[in-house]
Computed example of a mutant assay.
Amino acid sequence: MSRKVIAIIGSPRKGRTFEAVGMFEKRLKELGNIDFEYVFLKDVSLKECRGCGLCLEKGEEFCPLEDNRADIFARMMKADGVIFATPVYSLQVTALLKNLLDRLAYVFHRPCFFHKSFMAVVTQGIYGVEGVLKYLDEVAHFWGFKVCPGLGLTVFWEKPSAADLKKIDDEAEKAAKRFYDSLTRNSDPVPSLKEVIMFRSVRAFHSIAAGFPRDHQYYREQGWLDSDYYYETRLGWHKKLAGRWVERQALKQAMRDKMKLVESRLS
Protein backbone atom coordinates (compact mmCIF):
# COMPACT_ATOMS: atom_id res chain seq x y z
CA MET A 1 0.00 0.00 0.00
CA SER A 2 1.42 3.38 -1.03
CA ARG A 3 1.40 6.29 1.39
CA LYS A 4 1.28 9.82 0.09
CA VAL A 5 3.47 12.44 1.78
CA ILE A 6 3.58 16.13 0.96
CA ALA A 7 6.51 18.29 2.03
CA ILE A 8 5.79 22.02 2.17
CA ILE A 9 9.06 23.91 1.93
CA GLY A 10 9.00 27.33 3.57
CA SER A 11 12.50 28.41 2.59
CA PRO A 12 12.86 31.20 0.01
CA ARG A 13 15.63 29.22 -1.66
CA LYS A 14 16.67 25.63 -2.28
CA GLY A 15 19.43 25.44 0.29
CA ARG A 16 20.25 23.40 3.38
CA THR A 17 16.62 22.88 4.43
CA PHE A 18 15.73 21.43 1.03
CA GLU A 19 18.80 19.18 1.16
CA ALA A 20 17.80 17.92 4.62
CA VAL A 21 14.30 17.07 3.42
CA GLY A 22 15.86 15.27 0.46
CA MET A 23 17.86 13.07 2.84
CA PHE A 24 14.72 12.44 4.87
CA GLU A 25 12.81 11.52 1.70
CA LYS A 26 15.49 9.03 0.67
CA ARG A 27 15.48 7.33 4.06
CA LEU A 28 11.68 7.27 4.19
CA LYS A 29 11.39 5.60 0.79
CA GLU A 30 13.80 2.90 1.93
CA LEU A 31 11.22 1.85 4.52
CA GLY A 32 8.24 1.37 2.24
CA ASN A 33 6.17 2.49 -0.73
CA ILE A 34 6.04 6.29 -0.40
CA ASP A 35 4.71 8.82 -2.91
CA PHE A 36 6.63 11.99 -1.98
CA GLU A 37 5.47 15.38 -3.25
CA TYR A 38 6.97 18.85 -2.79
CA VAL A 39 5.33 22.25 -2.55
CA PHE A 40 7.74 25.18 -2.66
CA LEU A 41 6.00 28.19 -1.17
CA LYS A 42 8.43 30.51 -2.94
CA ASP A 43 7.01 29.34 -6.28
CA VAL A 44 3.27 29.47 -5.55
CA SER A 45 0.84 32.36 -5.47
CA LEU A 46 -0.06 32.94 -1.84
CA LYS A 47 -1.16 36.46 -0.98
CA GLU A 48 -0.74 37.92 2.48
CA CYS A 49 -3.63 37.42 4.89
CA ARG A 50 -5.66 40.63 5.36
CA GLY A 51 -7.17 39.59 8.67
CA CYS A 52 -10.70 40.19 7.37
CA GLY A 53 -12.00 37.15 9.27
CA LEU A 54 -14.35 35.95 6.50
CA CYS A 55 -12.81 32.46 6.57
CA LEU A 56 -13.68 32.27 10.26
CA GLU A 57 -17.13 33.85 10.18
CA LYS A 58 -18.55 32.51 6.92
CA GLY A 59 -16.12 29.89 5.62
CA GLU A 60 -12.80 29.59 3.84
CA GLU A 61 -14.51 29.64 0.44
CA PHE A 62 -15.39 33.30 1.10
CA CYS A 63 -11.76 34.40 1.32
CA PRO A 64 -11.44 37.40 -1.05
CA LEU A 65 -7.88 36.50 -2.05
CA GLU A 66 -7.58 34.55 -5.29
CA ASP A 67 -4.44 32.40 -5.27
CA ASN A 68 -3.22 28.86 -4.60
CA ARG A 69 -4.30 28.58 -0.95
CA ALA A 70 -7.22 26.24 -1.67
CA ASP A 71 -5.05 24.04 -3.88
CA ILE A 72 -2.38 23.66 -1.19
CA PHE A 73 -5.05 22.81 1.37
CA ALA A 74 -6.63 20.21 -0.94
CA ARG A 75 -3.25 18.56 -1.52
CA MET A 76 -2.66 18.40 2.23
CA MET A 77 -6.08 16.79 2.71
CA LYS A 78 -5.29 14.11 0.11
CA ALA A 79 -2.00 13.20 1.79
CA ASP A 80 -1.43 10.60 4.49
CA GLY A 81 1.41 12.64 5.93
CA VAL A 82 2.40 16.31 5.89
CA ILE A 83 5.81 17.87 6.49
CA PHE A 84 6.45 21.54 7.16
CA ALA A 85 10.09 22.38 6.49
CA THR A 86 11.65 25.72 7.36
CA PRO A 87 14.91 27.32 8.39
CA VAL A 88 14.89 29.43 11.54
CA TYR A 89 14.55 33.11 10.65
CA SER A 90 14.68 35.53 13.59
CA LEU A 91 13.72 32.74 16.02
CA GLN A 92 10.63 31.79 13.99
CA VAL A 93 9.45 30.12 10.81
CA THR A 94 10.01 32.00 7.57
CA ALA A 95 7.53 34.62 6.41
CA LEU A 96 6.49 32.29 3.58
CA LEU A 97 5.44 29.54 5.96
CA LYS A 98 3.91 31.89 8.53
CA ASN A 99 1.71 33.38 5.83
CA LEU A 100 0.44 29.90 4.92
CA LEU A 101 -0.37 29.22 8.58
CA ASP A 102 -2.21 32.55 8.76
CA ARG A 103 -4.16 31.78 5.60
CA LEU A 104 -5.19 28.43 7.13
CA ALA A 105 -6.22 29.99 10.45
CA TYR A 106 -9.76 28.68 10.01
CA VAL A 107 -8.43 25.16 10.66
CA PHE A 108 -7.81 26.16 14.29
CA HIS A 109 -11.58 26.64 14.52
CA ARG A 110 -12.52 23.68 12.34
CA PRO A 111 -9.80 21.00 12.68
CA CYS A 112 -9.78 18.48 9.85
CA PHE A 113 -6.44 16.65 9.64
CA PHE A 114 -7.33 13.75 11.92
CA HIS A 115 -5.75 10.35 11.13
CA LYS A 116 -2.95 12.08 9.19
CA SER A 117 0.67 12.21 10.35
CA PHE A 118 2.72 15.39 10.74
CA MET A 119 6.39 16.16 11.15
CA ALA A 120 8.32 19.42 11.21
CA VAL A 121 11.80 19.66 9.69
CA VAL A 122 13.62 22.71 11.01
CA THR A 123 17.17 23.87 10.36
CA GLN A 124 19.17 26.43 12.29
CA GLY A 125 22.53 28.09 12.01
CA ILE A 126 23.14 28.42 15.74
CA TYR A 127 19.94 28.77 17.78
CA GLY A 128 16.13 28.62 17.65
CA VAL A 129 15.28 25.17 16.35
CA GLU A 130 13.64 23.90 19.56
CA GLY A 131 11.25 26.85 19.77
CA VAL A 132 10.20 26.53 16.14
CA LEU A 133 9.69 22.76 16.44
CA LYS A 134 7.51 23.34 19.50
CA TYR A 135 5.48 26.00 17.69
CA LEU A 136 4.84 23.85 14.60
CA ASP A 137 3.98 20.82 16.71
CA GLU A 138 1.42 22.88 18.63
CA VAL A 139 -0.15 24.15 15.39
CA ALA A 140 -0.37 20.58 14.08
CA HIS A 141 -1.99 19.36 17.31
CA PHE A 142 -4.68 22.03 17.06
CA TRP A 143 -5.29 21.08 13.43
CA GLY A 144 -5.89 17.43 14.34
CA PHE A 145 -2.70 15.74 13.11
CA LYS A 146 -0.96 12.77 14.67
CA VAL A 147 2.19 14.69 15.58
CA CYS A 148 5.50 12.90 15.24
CA PRO A 149 8.58 14.31 17.03
CA GLY A 150 10.27 16.59 14.54
CA LEU A 151 13.68 16.73 12.92
CA GLY A 152 15.80 19.64 14.13
CA LEU A 153 19.20 20.15 12.54
CA THR A 154 22.14 22.51 12.90
CA VAL A 155 23.51 23.31 9.46
CA PHE A 156 26.22 25.60 8.21
CA TRP A 157 26.19 28.32 5.57
CA GLU A 158 29.29 26.98 3.88
CA LYS A 159 29.42 23.57 2.22
CA PRO A 160 29.10 20.89 4.93
CA SER A 161 31.93 18.45 5.52
CA ALA A 162 31.54 14.71 5.07
CA ALA A 163 31.23 14.34 8.85
CA ASP A 164 28.46 16.97 8.96
CA LEU A 165 26.57 15.23 6.16
CA LYS A 166 26.89 11.90 7.96
CA LYS A 167 25.45 13.40 11.14
CA ILE A 168 22.51 14.96 9.25
CA ASP A 169 21.85 11.71 7.42
CA ASP A 170 21.84 9.74 10.69
CA GLU A 171 19.28 12.15 12.18
CA ALA A 172 17.20 11.99 8.99
CA GLU A 173 17.19 8.20 9.18
CA LYS A 174 15.93 8.24 12.77
CA ALA A 175 13.24 10.78 11.90
CA ALA A 176 12.15 8.77 8.85
CA LYS A 177 11.64 5.69 11.02
CA ARG A 178 9.52 7.69 13.47
CA PHE A 179 7.43 9.15 10.69
CA TYR A 180 7.00 5.85 8.86
CA ASP A 181 5.81 4.21 12.06
CA SER A 182 3.21 6.95 12.46
CA LEU A 183 2.13 6.66 8.82
CA THR A 184 1.63 2.90 8.99
CA ARG A 185 0.03 2.77 12.43
CA ASN A 186 -3.73 2.51 11.98
CA SER A 187 -4.63 3.61 15.50
CA ASP A 188 -5.05 7.21 16.56
CA PRO A 189 -3.43 8.55 19.74
CA VAL A 190 -5.47 8.44 22.93
CA PRO A 191 -6.16 12.08 23.85
CA SER A 192 -4.68 13.45 27.04
CA LEU A 193 -6.82 14.86 29.83
CA LYS A 194 -5.90 18.37 28.66
CA GLU A 195 -7.03 17.59 25.10
CA VAL A 196 -10.35 16.16 26.32
CA ILE A 197 -10.97 19.22 28.48
CA MET A 198 -10.18 21.57 25.58
CA PHE A 199 -12.52 19.67 23.27
CA ARG A 200 -15.41 19.70 25.75
CA SER A 201 -14.88 23.40 26.52
CA VAL A 202 -14.94 24.39 22.85
CA ARG A 203 -17.84 22.03 22.16
CA ALA A 204 -19.90 23.70 24.90
CA PHE A 205 -19.31 27.06 23.25
CA HIS A 206 -20.45 25.81 19.84
CA SER A 207 -23.36 23.75 21.14
CA ILE A 208 -25.37 26.92 21.77
CA ALA A 209 -24.00 28.70 18.69
CA ALA A 210 -22.23 31.26 20.89
CA GLY A 211 -19.46 31.73 18.35
CA PHE A 212 -19.28 31.90 14.57
CA PRO A 213 -22.23 30.23 12.80
CA ARG A 214 -19.87 28.32 10.49
CA ASP A 215 -18.13 26.71 13.47
CA HIS A 216 -21.44 25.59 14.98
CA GLN A 217 -22.49 24.16 11.62
CA TYR A 218 -19.17 22.33 11.25
CA TYR A 219 -19.34 20.77 14.71
CA ARG A 220 -22.89 19.65 14.05
CA GLU A 221 -22.00 18.14 10.66
CA GLN A 222 -19.06 16.24 12.17
CA GLY A 223 -21.26 14.84 14.94
CA TRP A 224 -19.05 16.44 17.58
CA LEU A 225 -21.90 18.04 19.52
CA ASP A 226 -22.74 14.58 20.90
CA SER A 227 -19.40 12.78 20.87
CA ASP A 228 -16.79 12.18 23.57
CA TYR A 229 -14.00 13.43 21.32
CA TYR A 230 -13.15 14.37 17.74
CA TYR A 231 -12.81 10.69 16.81
CA GLU A 232 -13.74 7.36 18.35
CA THR A 233 -11.37 6.54 21.19
CA ARG A 234 -11.40 4.87 24.58
CA LEU A 235 -11.46 7.39 27.40
CA GLY A 236 -10.94 6.50 31.03
CA TRP A 237 -13.68 7.34 33.51
CA HIS A 238 -11.64 10.20 35.00
CA LYS A 239 -11.33 11.88 31.58
CA LYS A 240 -15.05 11.52 30.91
CA LEU A 241 -15.94 12.86 34.36
CA ALA A 242 -13.56 15.80 34.07
CA GLY A 243 -14.82 16.52 30.55
CA ARG A 244 -18.46 16.61 31.65
CA TRP A 245 -17.69 18.91 34.59
CA VAL A 246 -15.64 21.32 32.47
CA GLU A 247 -18.29 21.36 29.77
CA ARG A 248 -21.01 22.29 32.27
CA GLN A 249 -18.92 25.20 33.55
CA ALA A 250 -18.03 26.31 30.03
CA LEU A 251 -21.67 26.11 28.99
CA LYS A 252 -22.71 28.37 31.87
CA GLN A 253 -20.08 30.92 30.90
CA ALA A 254 -21.03 30.71 27.22
CA MET A 255 -24.68 31.32 28.11
CA ARG A 256 -23.75 34.36 30.19
CA ASP A 257 -21.61 35.74 27.39
CA LYS A 258 -24.38 35.17 24.86
CA MET A 259 -26.93 36.96 27.03
CA LYS A 260 -24.59 39.94 27.46
CA LEU A 261 -24.17 40.12 23.70
CA VAL A 262 -27.92 40.07 23.15
CA GLU A 263 -28.44 42.76 25.79
CA SER A 264 -25.77 44.98 24.27
CA ARG A 265 -27.43 44.74 20.85
CA LEU A 266 -30.82 45.65 22.31
CA SER A 267 -29.54 48.62 24.33
Rank of each mutant, 00 (worst) to 15 (best):
P64Y: 06
V147H: 00
K167C: 05
K47W: 07
S11Y: 08
N186D: 10
Y219K: 04
P111L: 11
V196K: 00
L101Q: 05
K174M: 11
Y229I: 15
S2K: 15
H115A: 12
R3W: 13
S227T: 04
P189G: 09
M76E: 01
Y230M: 09
F118W: 03
V246N: 07
A242N: 04
Q249I: 06
D170V: 04
A172I: 12
H216Y: 14
S267P: 00
L193K: 14
A210G: 06
W237M: 10
S2T: 08
T17S: 02
S264N: 09
Y38I: 06
R234A: 14
E19T: 03
E232F: 05
C63V: 01
P64G: 06
R110E: 12
L235A: 04
K26S: 11
M76K: 01
G152I: 15
L100G: 11
L96D: 07
P149R: 01
F205H: 13
S11T: 13
M259L: 12
K116W: 01
K29W: 08
I8N: 04
V93D: 01
F40W: 03
D181F: 09
Y127F: 12
P64M: 03
Y135L: 05
E263L: 15
K166G: 05
I34M: 07
G131K: 09
P149S: 03
R203M: 14
G131W: 12
G152T: 15
M23A: 07
P87W: 04
T86S: 14
H216R: 12
A254H: 07
F36E: 02
P160A: 15
V44R: 15
R256A: 07
M198G: 04
F199L: 15
K167P: 02
